[in-house]
Design a protein around this nucleic acid. Structure first.
Length: 259
DNA sequence: ATGGTCGTCTAACGA
């Protein structure tokens, strides 16, 4: 557990369907810790054997059919916590937290929000508010903290294929971006943008309308680190290769390496 | 063309 280590985030859109792809990606890229979203199953149904043979242990916050988040770790995780007290009555499994050495990792699956103005959008905004309060009251911006996951929000215009069309749409509406802004104001850094400036670098493409082939995507799978931890980052990359495979997730992995 | 495609205890939902 000494030396540089790699943390990846991947919305797998059903771990039951994607376990072989995740195992192959572990074999190819050798990450130390994976944060997965959209498991779509309960902890009891998690296909852990495929990862145990690779000496990866799972920490799972699951539910039937929807949502679900997990860590796959080659090293011991401590202080594992599931859900957040700020959304205590919420049955949706969208957050898991753990500590690896001196680094705390929070893995989130932010609600999609459906369409602006819908009940699901209101839930998304309530969830993001609860998450900001969670950080503000239970963490400090000077600790070694990283928040990874599917945020279902593109931070900037260069992070979505048609920012003008999406200006008032879900994934890029003003209130959603303001919710990310609150996290930046608290002290988180969008790690990918410490290493890459270009527009058109996406982590998700809709299955419909040949969006991947047409390069119509968004960067919504994000790695946010406190400044103290961001200064230890050596790289941050999107690996588009898994999105090219047969039967892919609609999201592709994003990873960071830390000293 | 309010379309398209995936995944979910195969029927509409959610993404």
């Amino acid at each position: 557990m000494s030396g540089p280590w790699t943390l990846a985030t991947w919305n797998v859109n059903s771990i039951k369907m994607r376990a072989p792809a995740v195992a192959a990606w572990i074999d190819a890229r050798r990450p130390d810790l994976l944060a997965l979203q959209e498991l779509k199953l309960t902890e009891d149904d998690f296909p852990g054997a495929e990862f145990a043979t690779r000496n990866f242990r799972a920490a799972i916050h699951g539910q039937k059919t929807y949502n679900g988040v997990a860590f796959l770790s080659a090293d011991a995780l401590e202080d594992v916590a599931k859900g957040m007290p700020e959304m205590e009555d919420d049955p949706q499994a969208r957050l898991i937290k753990a500590r690896r050495g001196d680094v705390t990792i929070i893995n989130v699956y932010v609600p999609n929000g459906s369409t602006v103005g819908s009940d699901k959008y209101a839930y998304k905004m309530r969830w993001l508010d609860a998450f900001a309060r969670h950080l503000e009251t239970r963490h400090r911006p000077d600790e070694a903290l990283v928040v990874v996951g599917d945020f279902n929000v593109a931070p900037e215009a260069r992070d979505i294929y048609d920012p003008v069309a999406f200006k008032d749409q879900v994934l890029f509406s003003e209130p959603e971006r303001a919710a990310l802004g609150r996290l930046f104001d608290w002290g988180l850094v969008d790690l990918f943008r410490r290493f890459h400036e270009d527009a058109g670098l996406y982590s998700w493409w809709d299955y419909r309308a040949a969006a991947f082939r047409r390069k119509l995507g968004a960067r919504i799978d994000l790695i946010f680190a406190t400044r103290a931890l961001a200064d230890r980052a050596l790289r941050c990359e999107i690996d588009v290769e898994p999105r090219r495979a047969e039967k892919p997730s609609d999201h592709t992995p994003v990873w960071a390496q830390f000293a």
